[in-house]
Design a protein around this nucleic acid. Structure first.
Lengths: 190, 190
DNA sequence: ACCTGAACACCGTTCAAGT
DNA sequence: ACCTGAACACCGTTCAAGT
């Protein structure tokens, strides 16, 4: 079914992704600063070629951080095997924060892939991974019923917007608030 | 000290703000869709005039939603007078969600004004209002010590990114998670 | 002192021509 | 089948000329 690709196309694609990675790491992954025409230039390809391989900047970002996202998805099963659900979720988010600390762009990639189906065909749907963590938590009575993966991804978006120098100070606080908030309601003050 | 302004300048300013409001309400306050040159055209002024009055789009948005933001600030004192701190905070956020439901742009204005000092001189610093709510909560032992207003605004940013049709479904959930997460930690699962 | 609007700058996107 | 890169489109920003 799937036709062979020309080797120059494959090579170009790789060089584009690599160039994008290089550009991003130069700015600690400030995704909005990534200029596509600079990526094309750095990769030594025409702009049309970049556009052919990656119709949107989100497609490009998804590819750049594919490795990290796959690892995150693959981490879910072991975590759930070794820990109670809420602890698995916490551990998973800790890992996410660690990735994002170095490459801020992973958060942008997660947000983007959540609302489009950039990974629809792939076998590493990140939102399904998160959904599984939440479902196990619900089954154990450790996570409130009404939340879904989209809610959590919306909340985690806060991490994307932490100013660079404040990351170490605010990221842990933000995650703690989210995790604690995910737990079933306590009695509210009258 | 402050020089008189020419009446045409005042009138232009008002017309720009009004035109921006009109444009925004047409798209339910999708702030990114606001085209500044269209605002200038709709207001019947040159683009330079818009730029003179509002050096950034954030300045313009701050002015557009000034009324709402002022009301939010003014609501804090009565809420704290009538309710325990956490309940006051919840009530305040409920009001915020109600504003944002109709005009999604208020969330963008809040985010923008939090990180710049668009209201520095003004007497309705929104982050100070939120800080007061949090401080009272901390004093009452109802809010965890380590959070500040910036953390909460980062988290509330999630509301900005709820897709339009899902607002009614997700906004209450998001707010509930945040408020519950702000409360002091319970014992975590071992 | 303030306004106008053409001109400029910047980037993402397209497409005719080439291999 | 894929690539190139000039051309186009879109917008935000500036500034010389005007009132």
């Amino acid at each position: 079914m799937s036709r062979e690709r020309r080797s120059d196309a494959v090579a170009n694609r790789d060089r584009i992704v690599e160039a994008a990675r290089a550009e991003l790491s130069r700015s600690n992954g400030a995704v909005d600063d990534l200029k596509l025409h600079l990526v094309a230039k750095a990769a030594g390809v025409g702009q049309g070629t970049l556009y052919r391989h990656f119709p949107t900047r989100e497609h490009l970002l998804a590819e750049v951080y594919r490795h990290e996202l796959t690892e995150l998805v693959d981490a879910v099963a072991p975590l759930l095997a070794e820990h109670p659900p809420l602890r698995a979720l916490t551990g998973w988010l800790d890992r996410l924060v660690e990735y994002a600390r170095v490459k801020r762009g992973v958060m942008a990639a997660i947000e983007a892939s959540a609302w489009q189906d950039l990974y629809a065909g792939q076998h590493h749907r990140l939102d399904e991974a998160l959904e599984l963590l939440l479902d196990r938590g619900k089954a154990a009575g450790e996570v409130r019923e009404e939340v879904d993966a989209a809610d959590v991804i919306l909340l985690l978006g806060a991490l994307s917007r932490i100013p660079g120098p404040e990351w170490d100070k605010r990221a842990p606080t933000v995650v703690t608030v989210i995790v604690d908030g995910l737990r079933p309601s306590r009695a509210r003050p009258s």
